[in-house]
Design a protein around this nucleic acid. Structure first.
Lengths: 93, 93
DNA sequence: AGTACATTTGTCCTTTTAAGGACAAGAACA
DNA sequence: TGTTCTTGTCCTTAAAAGGACAAATGTACT
């Protein structure tokens, strides 16, 4: 979800993980894990990535947040119900 | 959301927080916080509460999960977008 | 007004879990 | 083979969970 997006962005910019890693000041393993949703992406890194890929943070944010939500509901069989409850709760306000 | 539910259940059973607290082995402050969504409700406590109120855990679970999701998306203005992304992602599987 | 009980709020502490990240070593691939 | 990407393990620090306690507030009754 977010990882896929990040990978797309990197490849569409013709970049290799090593370069991204350098830009963020981390190693390539870290980048790989972010792209495979194995490590959470911090918000500050998200900002750096957005800048690096020349997109606005705002476009990435929904995917970033979705990823977080997914880890919470992941493997719960009432996930859909829960999400719908939250949705109605949100626009009730 | 979950808290409201718990409070409803308690009151519909004509119980007071002190009794719930005793059943769970915690103090009343803790119960109050659970009912006001100030403290997360652990899954084991959820089970105890379900048993105590004579409802199945399955009926409470969606609200419990919704509460967790809410704390994740809370104060993010793209919350709705994120939730929708997760929804489509989920039933894509 | 004053007591008695119920609930809420705030602060504190300890323990558990997650984040953030390095490193080494294993696949893929060109 | 050299480069990229992935996986697994480890470590350290930063949060969050779980919960106690005290004190404040609310409520109802007489």
């Amino acid at each position: 979800m977010l990882g896929e997006k990040l990978k797309e962005l990197r490849e569409s910019n013709g970049l290799v993980q090593r370069q991204v890693a350098a830009a963020l000041g981390v190693d390539t393993a870290y980048v790989s894990k972010m792209e495979n949703n194995d490590k959470p992406v911090s918000r500050t890194k998200l900002k750096s990535l957005a800048k690096f890929y020349h997109v606005t943070e705002k476009t990435l944010l929904p995917f970033w947040l979705a990823e977080k939500v997914l880890t919470v509901v992941h493997n719960e069989d009432c996930a859909t119900d829960a999400l719908k409850i939250v949705l109605t709760e949100i626009d009730k306000k």
